[in-house]
Design a protein around this nucleic acid. Structure first.
Ligand SMILES: [Zn+2]
Ligand SMILES: [Zn+2]
Ligand SMILES: [Zn+2]
Ligand SMILES: [Zn+2]
Lengths: 162, 162
DNA sequence: CACCTTTTTGTTATAGTATTACATAACAGT
DNA sequence: ACTGTTATGTAATACTATAACAAAAAGGTG
């Protein structure tokens, strides 16, 4: 199979399960890499995982405030940067926002399907895309090391509501 | 041939020719579509085409100032938005910057190779990537209408200097 | 434990990117 | 010339992100 859908989360599902599993994976992953998933970082990760919609840094700040913290921007950005480097979340450049990664230990680069209607984002990993990029890069002598692939459109659920 | 390099501009070439051709194509393209390429818009397009490096909106403002204008941010953003909609330039979301499109009439979506060393950007159009995306989108019921594909790495010229 | 080093978090200020709202000017058709 | 439309000018503001330094917490060592 040449493509794999990591998070096909356009539509109904048991989201409490998503969040719980993400947190458990995060604990294991950080322990394995010697990274410290502090209380603050875990709380930010929980906030990011509240939905499958991307969350901005200032959304995180706002949410932290409702939880009793009095954070300044660096607090959110530092936690988010940690989570990005730990590969627990991804940053969506086209939206200036972050989204939880459902498969943090696979060392993948994110490829994202962004629904303009419901704002949900699904992460995919399509080996054909990766191979096509590697092949093109190689043919031009370009040495690729990071990909930002963000596809915008309408998810099936939203399209059928039209 | 499944992939096509639109602008393989990592390295030496006659750049005056790039700029001149881009401006001529812009005139023709706008005339054909009934779009008005005003003096200001043409000047901004020229600024964007000064190099193959992406140019930020505030870079454009700065450059307009050296040319005798006294512009405010909306002046630059409006001209850049026009040029994006006219498909004469592309916006690189991962850099908050703009770059000239060397093939404005082909109705393509940009795919970009961004060199972190020399900052140059090449635009490519790889049909395998597009097909892979369409196939994945179709298989999930996702209706894609815009792609943002930005590959970061080292161009051949920069890598051989290491 | 007391001490030192490193990492994390708090705090203030500021830099960088982009848009809103409204006024004026240029343009196109009558 | 008159009128509606599009483009540009201008001022203010909103949104996104980082720098610089202080304080606190965590971890290791004797
Ligand atoms: Zn879920
Ligand atoms: Zn949707
Ligand atoms: Zn050139
Ligand atoms: Zn280079």
């Amino acid at each position: 199979m040449s493509d794999k859908i990591i998070s096909p989360f356009f539509g109904q599902h048991n989201h409490a399960h998503c969040t719980q599993e993400a947190l458990e994976q995060a604990e294991v992953s950080c322990a394995g890499k010697g990274l410290k998933l502090t209380a603050l970082r875990k709380e930010v990760l929980t906030i990011v995982w509240q939905t499958h919609k991307p969350v901005g840094a200032y959304d995180v700040l706002e949410e932290l405030r409702t939880r009793g913290h009095k954070p300044s921007p660096p607090t959110a950005y530092r936690a988010l940067d940690f989570l990005v480097h730990a590969k627990l979340i991804h940053r969506l450049a086209s939206l200036n926002a972050y989204i939880g990664c459902p498969a943090p230990d696979e060392g993948h680069q994110g490829q994202f399907l962004i629904c303009t209607q419901c704002k949900s984002v699904a992460e995919i990993e399509d080996l054909r895309i990766i191979k096509a990029i590697d092949a093109t890069a190689a043919s031009t002598g370009f040495n690729a090391n990071r990909q930002s692939i963000e596809i915008t459109g309408l998810c099936g659920a939203c399209e059928s509501q039209t």
